[in-house]
């Protein structure tokens, strides 16, 4: 009671001195110039995409000034048979590529995590090659390969190539996930009487699962988005969505292309955010 009265009495006449709290010297993100730099960077990163998305809804062919909201270009893109076919091709390829590359990549990631063998460093370098070499080199080599084997270019050749560049990505993700695995979990399981097989399915596999899901979603996105390698391995009748957009883009900038692009952005972002959520959720659970 007393103390309350006292503080009230002293506070009243000398109203609290309002002053700007000087910032901490390393608190760059609350400094004005840094905020301007960040805002500028974010604008640079987002303006092109947002403009593209916004003008897919613009009721104008010239698509530079806003003429009102419309969905007609989505309708047009949807009814565009060639675009529709390309989309179905892309989905078929991405699905098969994801299934195969996730299976093989997961096995590979697990084997590299688990076993030590002669020449491992070299092998490791080799499976990273598809990630680091320029896409154009891989694209033309696939073209030369299929030509030399007399295999006609089409859905099959695209899928085979997508699997080849997706396997290393899946393996890397799965292996990174396993590097946080404590081998004593397996030892505890064996100690409690489980055999190797039971231990794998009940202990190792559940731990590995978020990595597999993330790897699969990555493989799916990579396949969905790939342009360069697909460009060299596709033939007539096997046009994919990005290839179709490419040919439309070369022709002209139309709201229809914007609508198709927006659809692809939405699909990719949904998959990516799902993958990130799964990863961060399992990371949080593991952290506890």
């Amino acid at each position: 009671m007393n103390a309350k009265l006292e503080t009230a009495a002293t506070a009243a006449p000398t109203a609290p001195i309002k002053r700007r709290e000087r910032r901490n010297p390393l608190d760059y993100s609350s400094m004005r110039w840094m905020q301007i730099v960040l805002a500028g960077n974010f604008m640079f990163l987002y303006f092109p995409i947002l403009a593209l998305v916004a003008f897919s809804f613009n009721d104008s062919k010239r698509n530079i000034t806003w003429q009102g909201f419309t969905l007609k270009y989505y309708e047009k893109a949807w009814n565009n048979i060639a675009l529709h076919d390309a989309f179905m091709n892309t989905m078929t390829i991405a699905t098969i590529s994801t299934l195969v590359s996730t299976t093989f990549g997961t096995m590979l990631g697990l084997a590299i995590y688990r076993y030590k063998f002669p020449g491992k460093a070299l092998y490791d370098g080799w499976i990273h090659l598809p990630i680091v070499i320029p896409e154009i080199c891989m694209g033309v080599s696939m073209l030369a390969f299929f030509a030399a084997m007399n295999i006609p270019l089409g859905i099959f050749t695209i899928t085979v190539s997508h699997i080849a560049f997706s396997i290393p990505f899946v393996a890397v993700v799965v292996r990174a996930r396993m590097s946080g695995f404590d081998p004593s979990f397996e030892e505890a399981s064996t100690d409690l009487g489980a055999n190797q097989w039971q231990t794998f399915w009940n202990v190792t596999f559940p731990y590995m699962m978020p990595g597999v899901v993330a790897g699969a979603l990555l493989a799916f996105t990579l396949s969905l988005d790939d342009f360069v390698i697909t460009f060299f391995t596709s033939g007539p009748g096997s046009t994919t969505f990005p290839i179709k957009i490419y040919s439309m883009v070369r022709f002209s900038v139309t709201p229809e292309v914007n609508a198709a692009s927006t659809a692809l952005i939405v699909i990719t972002l949904t998959l990516t955010i799902t993958a990130m959520t799964i990863q961060s959720r399992s990371a949080r659970r593991q952290g506890k």
Binding site: L45, Y46, F47, P48, I49, A51, L52, F55, N63, T221, L224, D225, F227, P242, I245, Y246, V249, V253, V257, N258, S261, L264, I265, T268, L269, T272
Partner: peptide, 16 residues
């Protein structure tokens, strides 16, 4: 933005 299609990101600059 890094997760949106390379082709689309490049195409967006044509419009700009």
């Amino acid at each position: 933005p890094f997760w949106t299609n390379l082709l689309i990101r490049t195409y967006a600059w044509i419009a700009i």
